[in-house]
Amino acid sequence: MEVSDVFRIFAGVFSVVGLGLCLWLARVDFSKIPAERKVHLGVATLTGLAFFKLLALAALFAVPVVALGAANYHTIEGVHGVESCNRCHVMTPMVTDMRDPGSETLAARHFKNGWIPKDQCFQCHSDYGLAGDLRAKMEGYRHLARYTTGTYEEPIKFRGVFHNDNCLKCHAGTPKFVAVPSHATVQGRLAENSLSCLNCHGRAHPTREQRTPGHPDYTRLIGGDE
C-alpha cells in the first residue's frame, strides 16, 4: 500500500467521523441542555454543556483540520502517481503510450526499461510538488479548472517550456552523456533551456495529431488502458 493510500483512508475515516459529529451537532440546542447533565468520559466527568462544546470544537475544528490535511496530502503529493494523472482522460493517451512496450517515445522507453521505478509522470515533470516551483503548481490549478469545466479541446497543448533540468538531473555527468562532445558545447544553452534535449532524443509522448479525436491512433490511446 502506498503512503498516499494511507492518507486517503485516513482522510476518508475522518470525513465519516466528522460528518457524523456535524449531523449530531446540528441537532443540539445549547440553550436547552440541562445544567445538571453529566457526561462520563472514562476518568473525566463533564457537564453536558462542556461536552457539546468540546464536541463542537472537534467537529468544526479538530476533525476538519485532520481531514483536510490528509486529503491535501493527495492534492500535493498523491498527484505524483501515474494513476492520478491518468484520471483526467486527456492524459490517458500519454499513460497508455508510456505503458505500451511497442511504443518508441521517450516515456515508453524509460518505462519499459525500468529506468524510473515509480511516479513516472512526476519524475520528468517534477516542477510540480511541494518542492516544485510555484508557477508549475499554478499551472496545475489552471489545468484542473479547465478540465472540470470542460473548457479545453483535444489535443491538449503544452503551453509552457519543458525544463531540461528534468532530464539533466539524471543524465548529466553520466559517461554516455559526457562522451558526446556537443553536450559540453551546448551546456549553457541546455541550462538556460534555449535548446531542448528532445531535439536529438525525440518525442516524449504521442504527437498532437495522434491525440486528436478521429486519428486512427486516438481510440487505442484513449481506451487502451482501464
Partner: peptide
C-alpha cells in the same frame, strides 16, 4: 444557542472530502 449552520456547512464539506478521499 446552536451551531446548526457551521455544522451543516462542515457536514457538506466532509461529504465532499470523503468522496475525494474515496
Amino acid at each position: 444557542k446552536d451551531l446548526r449552520l457551521p455544522s451543516l456547512a462542515a457536514a457538506l464539506g466532509f461529504i465532499i472530502t470523503g468522496l475525494y478521499a474515496l
